[in-house]
Design a protein around this nucleic acid. Structure first.
Lengths: 350, 350
DNA sequence: GGTTACCTTTGGATCGTTCCAAATTCCCGC
DNA sequence: GCGGGAATTTGGAACGATCCAAAGGTAACC
């Protein structure tokens, strides 16, 4: 049983009504700016409201009106800058529409996600934006939130979704197109032997980005030998260590499309240790456009996902869904944008 | 008038009571785990609750009981990793105590802060954690939240606080001690000519950190000539540019205590361009322990403020205050911890 | 059987707001 | 002065839970 705390005595509609010698109903009309109430009465009441420091009790109103003025936002890790920016965008947009954000952080644990969801749902949010924890499955989620609260999934889909359950909206990034854009950019610069570097095939985002890479290469009639598709844990240090694998056989790549910015930065480090000059004789691209990408030397060409804008978009989507609970589920893929910086140079030979 | 949205028909206590042929009161007792109710009845009711997918309406309960189960968290910028981590800590701790976090982001605008605060207050949070936007003043804040909701200030104090208003709790970082610790560490390594680098004197945190530096230097009988106290905008690039100022005259520092990590990383860049080897013939310390500090080359000695732990602490403080609204305001200064890494080397000569 | 005590259950009022239908006041023309 | 429509105001019943005092049931004991 969760704890709660007493709060101090507050001024209510009744207090104001009594002081003004009118009924509760009239004061309520004033609060809602109804045109029904007489100018003079309104002025008197508004004065009294200010004088007594009245604060509206939205919970009570929501109870009576059977409405909600909050939206729950459940994120796997708020500490991650990508999600923090996303949250900022959500909150900004919701605030502008008069909604308040109920925050929940799951730390990538699906058990905690269950707890957080069922706690939040008790506060009666009008909708939920959820970026599912790894390994959480649809049935769990469904059982926690029931069928009455609209849900928008962000970034991933929970596993094991029986098709009949996926009536949920989805907002995802256009990973595939991003991979394609980066690759096309390198091809346009004149590169012919281009690697795909980093990430793991069991991550859906990595698979999607690599699909875009293969697509662009094939469209240009270029080869994508498996020797040029190098997996590694997506961290800076691992990427630096795996760098040498690029030159293991005779494909001699002159450029690499990296899974994300962390990998790209690590790769640049590794390249230097091997005597290459990223941005001068070897081109590198990333994905995410983290703050460091612009500051690195050379600055990193990457795909901007604009997480803050994604947040605003997610807010818009859930509000729309709340307006029309029976509309078909929308699966939206958000665009990503290529940001060209110094790390993507033309090949030396061209 | 903020917008709100209809939500679907939900199962209530009444529905369950009717199905089980008992009164609302009994069901309510079951929900709250009261020992009064008969084993057998409880089982029947619990079964029914599950079967019908009942979800507790905490808003209604809070209305009747005049309690709150939420806390508002208002942050100047959630996108900033420091605050994002802080928020994560707050949410984690509140969640564990059965409270829910109402999020608000102000983007450093005091007007927006007013709007956010008054909107949040209408949802009846049991308390508010506020990291004030720059330039917001106490009277504003007071008028937005009234005197009934406990407030905890984090990180800064709003300006213009008349003393009789500051009955608010405060959680701040021990900037001064941090500056002292870093400086003492360098002194212990054998450095004698140590600079304080970066930040602006009109920032209170910078002043406090520098005070700690001066304190340590004087305690060791060392000089702190103004030529070794170099101000600069606290960004990486500015720090790199100002680096040369360290060597403008004949003090020849062998180490620098930096205002924060961004400045320290920039300084290391600048040092290299001037032919020095940070971590080998010049020692550098930072402040904040951002994620990059551990990854930089050389890794950065810095002061960890552990924002996530600060968040947990803030949550604890506001809960405590809610438990005892009339206790004296507590002004807590959170410890910072020296994290020694590779960038703080001994001087070459020693 | 009646009294006591204990274990369970319950009706009805209440929290602060909104809804609704009906009541009251106002103003105007005849 | 009065009928009538418009403009205002209003009492009381909701919303979904909790509290409280009191009632019902059971069992034991004299």
């Amino acid at each position: 049983m969760p704890q709660t705390t007493q709060i101090g005595r507050k001024i209510t509609l009744n207090d104001i009504a009594a002081s003004c010698d009118v009924s509760r109903a009239t004061v309520s009309l004033v609060l809602r700016g109804s045109p029904l109430v007489n100018k003079h009465t309104r002025a008197r009441i508004e004065e009294e409201l200010r004088k007594q420091g009245y604060v509206y009790n939205r919970a009570a109103a929501n109870l009576r009106r059977r409405t909600s003025s909050s939206i729950a936002l459940v994120i796997n890790d708020i500490g991650n800058p990508f999600f923090a920016e996303f949250a900022a965008g959500v909150d900004e947009a919701l605030g502008n529409s008069g909604f308040v954000t109920l925050l929940g952080s799951t730390g990538e644990s699906s058990e905690r996600q269950q707890m957080v969801l069922s706690s939040l749902v008790e506060h009666g949010p009008g909708g939920i934006i959820l970026s599912p924890a790894e390994g959480s499955d649809s049935e769990q989620v469904l059982s926690a939130i029931g069928t009455h609260t609209p849900l928008l999934l962000f970034n991933r889909e929970p596993v094991g979704g029986r098709p009949e359950l996926s009536h949920w909206d989805l907002l995802a990034l256009d990973n595939q197109n991003g991979g394609r854009l980066a690759t096309e950019h390198l091809i346009a610069l004149g590169h012919r032997s281009i690697a795909f570097f980093g990430g793991h095939a069991d991550s859906s985002s990595c698979r999607q980005r690599r699909t875009g890479y293969v697509e662009a290469m094939q469209a240009a009639g270029l080869e994508t030998p498996t020797a040029l598709q190098i997996e590694c844990v997506p961290t800076r240090t691992e990427a630096a260590h795996r760098c040498a694998a690029l030159f293991d056989d005779n494909h001699r790549p002159t450029a690499a499309v990296c899974y994300n910015d962390a990998v790209a930065l690590g790769l640049m480090l590794g390249l230097r240790q091997l005597g290459h000059q990223p941005g001068e004789n070897f081109a590198v691209t990333g994905f995410d456009d983290i703050a460091e990408a612009a500051l690195a030397l050379p600055s990193l060409t990457t795909l901007s996902t604009d997480p803050r804008a994604r947040g605003r978009q997610a807010a818009g989507m859930i509000l729309q869904r709340m307006g029309d609970p029976f509309a078909l589920a929308s699966h939206t893929v958000a665009p990503v944008q290529l940001v060209v910086r110094a790390s993507s140079c033309p090949p030396l030979s061209s």
